[in-house]
Protein backbone atom coordinates (compact mmCIF):
# COMPACT_ATOMS: atom_id res chain seq x y z
CA UNK A 1 0.00 0.00 0.00
CA UNK A 2 2.77 2.40 0.93
CA UNK A 3 4.61 1.56 -2.25
CA UNK A 4 1.48 2.23 -4.25
CA UNK A 5 1.09 5.62 -2.62
CA UNK A 6 4.69 6.49 -3.35
CA UNK A 7 4.42 5.46 -6.99
CA UNK A 8 0.96 6.87 -7.68
CA UNK A 9 2.13 10.33 -8.78
CA UNK A 10 4.43 8.74 -11.34
CA UNK A 11 1.75 6.39 -12.64
CA UNK A 12 -0.50 9.38 -13.24
CA UNK A 13 2.28 11.70 -14.33
CA UNK A 14 4.04 9.56 -16.92
CA UNK A 15 1.15 9.23 -19.42
CA UNK A 16 0.35 12.90 -18.94
CA UNK A 17 3.95 13.84 -19.69
CA UNK A 18 3.94 11.64 -22.80
CA UNK A 19 0.82 13.37 -23.97
CA UNK A 20 2.33 16.82 -23.35
CA UNK A 21 5.50 15.87 -25.16
CA UNK A 22 3.55 14.63 -28.16
CA UNK A 23 1.34 17.71 -28.27
CA UNK A 24 3.80 20.49 -27.44
CA UNK A 25 5.38 22.43 -30.32
CA UNK A 26 9.20 22.76 -30.10
CA UNK A 27 9.16 26.36 -28.84
CA UNK A 28 6.88 25.39 -25.97
CA UNK A 29 9.03 22.31 -25.24
CA UNK A 30 12.06 24.54 -24.63
CA UNK A 31 10.14 26.61 -22.09
CA UNK A 32 8.70 23.49 -20.46
CA UNK A 33 12.17 21.97 -20.02
CA UNK A 34 13.55 25.21 -18.53
CA UNK A 35 10.54 25.48 -16.25
CA UNK A 36 10.89 21.85 -15.14
CA UNK A 37 14.58 22.27 -14.32
CA UNK A 38 13.77 25.42 -12.38
CA UNK A 39 11.10 23.54 -10.41
CA UNK A 40 13.68 20.88 -9.51
CA UNK A 41 16.17 23.54 -8.40
CA UNK A 42 13.67 25.64 -6.45
CA UNK A 43 12.02 22.74 -4.64
CA UNK A 44 15.35 21.16 -3.75
CA UNK A 45 16.79 24.43 -2.47
CA UNK A 46 13.61 24.85 -0.46
CA UNK A 47 14.59 21.74 1.54
CA UNK A 48 17.52 23.70 2.96
CA UNK A 49 16.42 27.35 2.80
CA UNK A 50 12.77 26.71 3.51
CA UNK A 51 12.28 23.65 5.70
CA UNK A 52 15.52 23.70 7.63
CA UNK A 53 15.82 27.48 7.74
CA UNK A 54 19.48 27.51 6.70
CA UNK A 55 20.47 29.98 4.04
CA UNK A 56 22.51 28.39 1.26
CA UNK A 57 23.85 30.44 -1.64
CA UNK A 58 25.72 27.58 -3.30
CA UNK A 59 23.08 25.65 -5.21
CA UNK A 60 24.73 26.29 -8.60
CA UNK A 61 27.94 24.67 -7.36
CA UNK A 62 26.15 21.37 -6.79
CA UNK A 63 24.39 21.76 -10.11
CA UNK A 64 27.81 22.04 -11.72
CA UNK A 65 29.07 18.88 -10.02
CA UNK A 66 26.03 16.90 -11.16
CA UNK A 67 26.09 18.38 -14.65
CA UNK A 68 29.76 17.59 -15.25
CA UNK A 69 29.47 14.05 -13.88
CA UNK A 70 26.43 13.34 -16.03
CA UNK A 71 28.10 14.82 -19.10
CA UNK A 72 31.23 12.73 -18.58
CA UNK A 73 29.16 9.54 -18.15
CA UNK A 74 27.00 10.01 -21.24
CA UNK A 75 30.05 10.89 -23.35
CA UNK A 76 31.89 7.82 -22.06
CA UNK A 77 28.90 5.56 -22.83
CA UNK A 78 28.69 6.93 -26.36
CA UNK A 79 26.53 5.46 -29.10
CA UNK A 80 24.59 2.24 -28.67
CA UNK A 81 26.44 -0.93 -29.82
CA UNK A 82 24.96 -2.63 -32.94
CA UNK A 83 23.14 -5.41 -31.11
CA UNK A 84 21.43 -3.01 -28.64
CA UNK A 85 18.26 -1.08 -29.12
CA UNK A 86 19.36 2.61 -29.25
CA UNK A 87 16.29 3.66 -27.25
CA UNK A 88 17.13 1.29 -24.42
CA UNK A 89 20.85 2.13 -24.50
CA UNK A 90 20.34 5.91 -24.59
CA UNK A 91 17.78 5.99 -21.80
CA UNK A 92 19.82 3.52 -19.78
CA UNK A 93 22.95 5.62 -20.21
CA UNK A 94 21.05 8.77 -19.27
CA UNK A 95 19.54 7.17 -16.16
CA UNK A 96 22.99 6.06 -15.12
CA UNK A 97 24.44 9.49 -15.84
CA UNK A 98 21.75 11.31 -13.85
CA UNK A 99 22.10 8.94 -10.91
CA UNK A 100 25.88 9.36 -11.07
CA UNK A 101 25.44 13.12 -11.12
CA UNK A 102 23.11 13.00 -8.12
CA UNK A 103 25.59 10.83 -6.25
CA UNK A 104 28.61 13.07 -6.84
CA UNK A 105 26.55 16.18 -6.10
CA UNK A 106 25.39 14.56 -2.86
CA UNK A 107 29.00 13.75 -1.95
CA UNK A 108 29.96 17.36 -2.71
CA UNK A 109 27.04 18.43 -0.51
CA UNK A 110 28.34 16.24 2.28
CA UNK A 111 31.87 17.61 1.92
CA UNK A 112 30.61 21.20 1.97
CA UNK A 113 27.88 20.64 4.52
CA UNK A 114 29.79 18.97 7.34
CA UNK A 115 32.20 21.83 7.96
CA UNK A 116 29.96 24.76 7.04
CA UNK A 117 26.67 23.79 8.69
CA UNK A 118 28.18 24.48 12.10
CA UNK A 119 27.91 28.12 11.08
CA UNK A 120 24.67 30.02 11.22
CA UNK A 121 22.71 32.54 9.21
CA UNK A 122 24.71 34.99 7.21
CA UNK A 123 28.03 33.21 7.69
CA UNK A 124 26.60 30.04 6.22
CA UNK A 125 25.37 32.05 3.24
CA UNK A 126 28.82 33.45 2.56
CA UNK A 127 30.60 30.12 3.04
CA UNK A 128 28.27 28.27 0.67
CA UNK A 129 28.78 31.10 -1.82
CA UNK A 130 32.52 30.64 -1.31
CA UNK A 131 32.29 26.90 -2.01
CA UNK A 132 30.22 27.65 -5.09
CA UNK A 133 33.01 29.85 -6.42
CA UNK A 134 35.73 27.37 -5.42
CA UNK A 135 33.96 24.57 -7.31
CA UNK A 136 33.69 26.82 -10.36
CA UNK A 137 37.33 27.94 -10.24
CA UNK A 138 38.47 24.33 -9.89
CA UNK A 139 36.43 23.21 -12.89
CA UNK A 140 37.86 26.09 -14.90
CA UNK A 141 41.34 24.82 -14.10
CA UNK A 142 40.70 21.15 -14.95
CA UNK A 143 41.79 20.43 -18.47
CA UNK A 144 39.91 17.10 -18.64
CA UNK A 145 36.71 18.98 -17.79
CA UNK A 146 37.25 21.34 -20.70
CA UNK A 147 38.58 24.26 -18.63
CA UNK A 148 36.83 27.59 -19.05
CA UNK A 149 35.26 26.67 -22.40
CA UNK A 150 33.60 23.53 -21.04
CA UNK A 151 32.48 20.43 -22.90
CA UNK A 152 30.27 20.65 -25.96
CA UNK A 153 28.60 18.04 -28.15
CA UNK A 154 26.61 16.27 -25.45
CA UNK A 155 23.94 13.83 -26.69
CA UNK A 156 20.42 15.40 -26.71
CA UNK A 157 18.85 13.05 -24.15
CA UNK A 158 16.72 15.46 -22.13
CA UNK A 159 13.06 15.60 -23.10
CA UNK A 160 9.91 16.97 -21.55
CA UNK A 161 9.19 13.52 -20.10
CA UNK A 162 12.60 13.27 -18.43
CA UNK A 163 12.40 16.75 -16.92
CA UNK A 164 8.80 16.17 -15.86
CA UNK A 165 9.74 12.94 -14.11
CA UNK A 166 12.66 14.68 -12.41
CA UNK A 167 10.46 17.52 -11.20
CA UNK A 168 7.82 15.05 -10.04
CA UNK A 169 10.42 13.02 -8.14
CA UNK A 170 11.76 16.15 -6.45
CA UNK A 171 8.31 17.30 -5.38
CA UNK A 172 7.29 13.83 -4.16
CA UNK A 173 10.49 13.38 -2.15
CA UNK A 174 10.20 16.86 -0.65
CA UNK A 175 6.56 16.32 0.26
CA UNK A 176 7.06 12.94 1.82
CA UNK A 177 10.02 14.20 3.83
CA UNK A 178 8.14 17.13 5.30
CA UNK A 179 5.37 14.83 6.45
CA UNK A 180 7.75 12.39 8.10
CA UNK A 181 9.20 12.41 11.60
CA UNK A 182 12.49 13.44 10.10
CA UNK A 183 10.80 16.36 8.37
CA UNK A 184 9.36 17.57 11.64
CA UNK A 185 12.86 17.56 13.07
CA UNK A 186 13.95 19.76 10.14
CA UNK A 187 11.08 22.17 10.77
CA UNK A 188 11.95 22.32 14.46
CA UNK A 189 15.49 23.36 13.54
CA UNK A 190 14.03 26.18 11.47
CA UNK A 191 11.68 27.35 14.18
CA UNK A 192 14.19 27.38 17.01
CA UNK A 193 17.53 25.67 16.82
CA UNK A 194 18.34 25.90 20.51
CA UNK A 195 14.94 24.56 21.56
CA UNK A 196 15.18 21.75 19.01
CA UNK A 197 18.55 20.74 20.38
CA UNK A 198 17.18 20.80 23.91
CA UNK A 199 14.41 18.46 22.75
CA UNK A 200 16.99 15.93 21.62
CA UNK A 201 17.03 16.71 17.90
CA UNK A 202 20.49 16.17 16.45
CA UNK A 203 20.46 19.53 14.72
CA UNK A 204 23.78 19.19 12.90
CA UNK A 205 22.83 15.77 11.47
CA UNK A 206 19.44 17.15 10.41
CA UNK A 207 20.98 20.05 8.58
CA UNK A 208 23.56 17.85 6.88
CA UNK A 209 20.84 15.40 5.72
CA UNK A 210 18.76 18.19 4.24
CA UNK A 211 21.80 19.72 2.63
CA UNK A 212 22.97 16.45 1.03
CA UNK A 213 19.51 15.67 -0.31
CA UNK A 214 19.12 19.16 -1.69
CA UNK A 215 22.55 18.94 -3.35
CA UNK A 216 21.64 15.60 -4.96
CA UNK A 217 18.57 17.11 -6.61
CA UNK A 218 20.55 20.16 -7.67
CA UNK A 219 22.86 17.66 -9.41
CA UNK A 220 19.83 16.10 -11.11
CA UNK A 221 18.73 19.53 -12.33
CA UNK A 222 22.22 20.24 -13.63
CA UNK A 223 22.44 16.92 -15.48
CA UNK A 224 19.04 17.46 -17.11
CA UNK A 225 19.82 21.04 -18.11
CA UNK A 226 23.13 20.35 -19.84
CA UNK A 227 21.71 17.46 -21.86
CA UNK A 228 19.20 19.87 -23.27
CA UNK A 229 21.49 22.77 -24.14
CA UNK A 230 24.12 20.16 -25.16
CA UNK A 231 26.90 22.18 -23.60
CA UNK A 232 28.36 22.36 -20.13
CA UNK A 233 30.49 25.37 -19.13
CA UNK A 234 31.55 26.74 -15.74
CA UNK A 235 29.93 30.07 -16.68
CA UNK A 236 26.44 28.60 -16.28
CA UNK A 237 27.10 27.85 -12.62
CA UNK A 238 28.25 31.10 -11.02
CA UNK A 239 26.64 32.31 -7.81
CA UNK A 240 24.36 34.50 -9.93
CA UNK A 241 22.58 31.27 -10.87
CA UNK A 242 22.36 30.32 -7.19
CA UNK A 243 20.75 33.65 -6.46
CA UNK A 244 18.22 33.16 -9.26
CA UNK A 245 17.11 29.98 -7.51
CA UNK A 246 17.01 31.77 -4.17
CA UNK A 247 14.70 34.37 -5.72
CA UNK A 248 12.30 31.60 -6.77
CA UNK A 249 12.29 30.10 -3.29
CA UNK A 250 11.92 33.44 -1.56
CA UNK A 251 9.18 34.52 -3.94
CA UNK A 252 7.16 31.34 -3.56
CA UNK A 253 7.55 31.21 0.17
CA UNK A 254 10.31 29.65 2.19
CA UNK A 255 8.96 26.31 3.26
CA UNK A 256 6.15 25.96 0.76
CA UNK A 257 6.63 23.27 -1.90
CA UNK A 258 3.71 24.35 -4.03
CA UNK A 259 4.79 27.97 -3.60
CA UNK A 260 8.32 27.25 -4.84
CA UNK A 261 6.96 25.19 -7.74
CA UNK A 262 4.55 27.91 -8.75
CA UNK A 263 7.20 30.62 -8.43
CA UNK A 264 9.61 28.63 -10.62
CA UNK A 265 6.93 28.13 -13.27
CA UNK A 266 5.67 31.70 -13.20
CA UNK A 267 9.14 33.23 -13.34
CA UNK A 268 10.22 31.00 -16.24
CA UNK A 269 7.12 31.76 -18.29
CA UNK A 270 7.18 35.46 -17.41
CA UNK A 271 10.80 35.72 -18.52
CA UNK A 272 9.99 33.90 -21.73
CA UNK A 273 7.18 36.34 -22.48
CA UNK A 274 9.49 39.34 -22.17
CA UNK A 275 12.44 37.94 -24.10
CA UNK A 276 13.12 41.31 -25.70
CA UNK A 277 13.58 42.89 -22.27
CA UNK A 278 16.38 40.54 -21.32
CA UNK A 279 18.55 43.30 -19.88
CA UNK A 280 15.83 44.12 -17.34
CA UNK A 281 15.62 40.55 -16.08
CA UNK A 282 18.12 40.78 -13.24
CA UNK A 283 16.98 44.31 -12.39
CA UNK A 284 13.47 42.92 -11.97
CA UNK A 285 14.69 39.98 -9.91
CA UNK A 286 16.53 42.26 -7.53
CA UNK A 287 13.67 44.74 -7.22
CA UNK A 288 11.34 41.84 -6.58
CA UNK A 289 13.59 40.60 -3.78
CA UNK A 290 13.82 43.97 -2.06
CA UNK A 291 10.12 44.80 -2.38
CA UNK A 292 9.12 41.32 -1.23
CA UNK A 293 11.38 41.43 1.81
CA UNK A 294 10.00 44.84 2.78
CA UNK A 295 6.36 43.91 2.30
CA UNK A 296 6.07 40.16 2.86
CA UNK A 297 9.33 38.66 4.13
CA UNK A 298 8.07 35.08 4.24
CA UNK A 299 7.32 35.01 0.53
CA UNK A 300 3.93 35.02 -1.15
CA UNK A 301 2.72 31.74 0.32
CA UNK A 302 4.85 31.76 3.47
CA UNK A 303 5.24 28.29 4.88
CA UNK A 304 1.75 27.30 3.75
CA UNK A 305 0.88 25.18 0.75
CA UNK A 306 -1.44 26.70 -1.83
CA UNK A 307 -4.40 24.47 -1.04
CA UNK A 308 -4.23 25.41 2.62
CA UNK A 309 -4.89 28.99 1.57
CA UNK A 310 -7.62 28.08 -0.90
CA UNK A 311 -9.51 25.63 1.27
CA UNK A 312 -12.13 26.55 3.86
CA UNK A 313 -10.65 28.69 6.59
CA UNK A 314 -9.94 26.73 9.70
CA UNK A 315 -10.17 28.66 12.91
CA UNK A 316 -6.81 29.07 14.56
CA UNK A 317 -6.59 27.81 18.10
CA UNK A 318 -6.23 30.69 20.51
CA UNK A 319 -2.56 31.20 21.17
Amino acid sequence: MRLVRALLPFAVGLPALWAIQAAAPPQLAIILVTAGVNVILAVSLNMVNGFTGQFSLGHAGFMAVGAYTAAKITLAMGEAPANWSPWLWNNGAFTLALLGGMLTAALAGLAVGIPSLRLRGDYLAIVTLGFNEIIRVFIENMRWLGGATGISGLPPYTSVVWVGLGALATVVVARRIVGSTHGRALLSVREDEVAAEAMGVDTVACKVHAFVLSAAFAGLGGGLLVHYILLVTPKSFTFVKSIEVVVMVVLGGMGSISGATLAALVLTFALELMRGLDQYRMVMYSLLLVVLMLSRPTGIFGTKEIWELLGPKRKKAAA
Binding site: D122, I243, M282, V283, S286, L288, M293
Partner: peptide, 26 residues
Protein backbone atom coordinates in the same frame (compact mmCIF):
# COMPACT_ATOMS: atom_id res chain seq x y z
CA UNK B 1 13.69 45.53 8.53
CA UNK B 2 15.70 46.12 11.66
CA UNK B 3 13.34 44.25 13.97
CA UNK B 4 12.90 41.30 11.60
CA UNK B 5 15.06 38.16 11.42
CA UNK B 6 18.58 38.86 10.23
CA UNK B 7 18.13 36.64 7.19
CA UNK B 8 15.50 39.04 5.86
CA UNK B 9 18.01 41.87 5.89
CA UNK B 10 20.62 39.65 4.24
CA UNK B 11 18.29 38.79 1.36
CA UNK B 12 17.44 42.48 1.01
CA UNK B 13 21.15 43.28 0.92
CA UNK B 14 21.64 40.77 -1.90
CA UNK B 15 18.72 42.39 -3.70
CA UNK B 16 20.20 45.88 -3.35
CA UNK B 17 23.56 44.57 -4.55
CA UNK B 18 22.06 43.07 -7.70
CA UNK B 19 19.93 46.12 -8.27
CA UNK B 20 23.05 48.31 -8.40
CA UNK B 21 25.03 45.84 -10.51
CA UNK B 22 22.38 45.26 -13.11
CA UNK B 23 20.85 48.71 -12.93
CA UNK B 24 24.20 50.16 -13.94
CA UNK B 25 24.38 47.71 -16.83
CA UNK B 26 21.24 49.04 -18.46
Amino acid sequence: LRERPRLTSLITAIGVSFLLEYGFQL
